[in-house]
């Protein structure tokens, strides 16, 4: 008897070939480098790794990265919610332009983003003389690093929320309004619970990028060891000084943070898929 194949099934050989290519590609370009990072770090055992991480400059870099993310991520979360809310729930002139502008940091090179801040706040920049007169440090200090991080991670939360909120529509908010809820009560009781998983997912992505950002921060940081070096910048510095174990140890720590984010993200995706499916059954 002839075996019937479903119309969407490809020939087995083609499937095998495509599958092999995909797996080889992922192994070669994603998994292998990650393994190299860990194996290089551990080349001389655990001791040097630990020593490299508790080194005072490394600790300062870790602290600075965490601090910058701790400021930039909440601010971008608030902005992202506000932007998504405005774009989805209201019609106003210039809406399309706002949507495009939100994507700007995705298309602009991070180095350019950094240079913009140099142009604005640098010694020769627009506000440079005024800032110098008032003894305010933005470039080569924490504010500059936070600004650059914020610019680069600007779209993550908004981008995550806009499609989700568009999908959910305005009806539940309208129902809340007609039942006598204030705008604030509607937001807290109706809007926020409906977007919470998407929001968390966006915040996680934003956080991962904030910790890992190199280009924009590199331009504005000034690379002062132990003061304005973030983790990625510190990795570069150690590497350029031929301290391979040190560089790969800090890099491994960064990679671990990223993997942790990835694991959390997968967990959320799984949760959030469930809730989205439930929402769609409406």
């Amino acid at each position: 008897m002839k075996k019937f194949r479903s119309a969407t099934d490809d020939p087995p050989l083609l499937r095998l070939a495509l599958g092999t290519i995909a797996i080889l590609f992922i192994a070669l370009f994603l998994i292998l480098p990650l393994l190299v990072v860990f194996s290089e770090a551990l080349a001389k055992g655990l001791g040097p790794v630990f020593a490299a991480i508790v080194d005072s400059d490394s600790l300062a870099a870790i602290k600075l990265s965490l601090l910058a993310a701790a400021i930039a991520v909440p601010l971008n979360t608030v902005f992202g919610i506000a932007a998504a809310w405005a774009i989805v729930k209201f019609d106003f002139p210039g809406k399309a332009i706002l949507v495009t502008l939100i994507d700007l940091p995705f298309s602009v090179s991070p180095v350019v983003a950094g240079l913009i801040y140099v142009l604005v706040f640098g010694r020769q920049g627009w506000f440079g003389p005024w800032l110098t007169d008032h003894n305010i440090h933005i470039l080569f200090a924490l504010p500059g690093i936070v600004l650059a991080t914020m610019f680069v991670t600007f779209p993550f939360v908004a981008r995550e929320l806009i499609p989700l909120m568009t999908d959910q529509g305005r009806e539940e908010e309208e129902a809340a309004l007609s039942l006598g809820a204030s705008g604030f009560a509607t937001f807290c009781r109706v809007t926020l619970p409906n977007i919470k998983w998407g929001l968390l997912y966006g915040v996680l992505l934003c956080n991962a990028r904030a910790l890992g950002e190199f280009g924009a921060v590199s331009v504005v940081s000034g690379h002062i060891r132990g003061q304005t070096n973030t983790m990625p910048l510190h990795v570069e510095l150690l590497y350029n000084n031929y301290d391979y174990v040190g560089a790969f140890s800090v890099a491994a720590l960064l990679a671990l943070l990223a993997l942790l984010t990835l694991a959390l993200k997968s967990f959320l995706e799984w949760r959030y898929a469930d809730e989205l499916a439930a929402a769609h059954r409406h």
Binding site: E172, A175, S178, G180, S182, A278, H282
Partner: peptide, 19 residues
Amino acid sequence: PARERKAGFVFQHYALFRH
């Protein structure tokens, strides 16, 4: 204002709070 009217509104697609 809408929230003071006490007009009970019923939508075609229910608009129940799904959570």
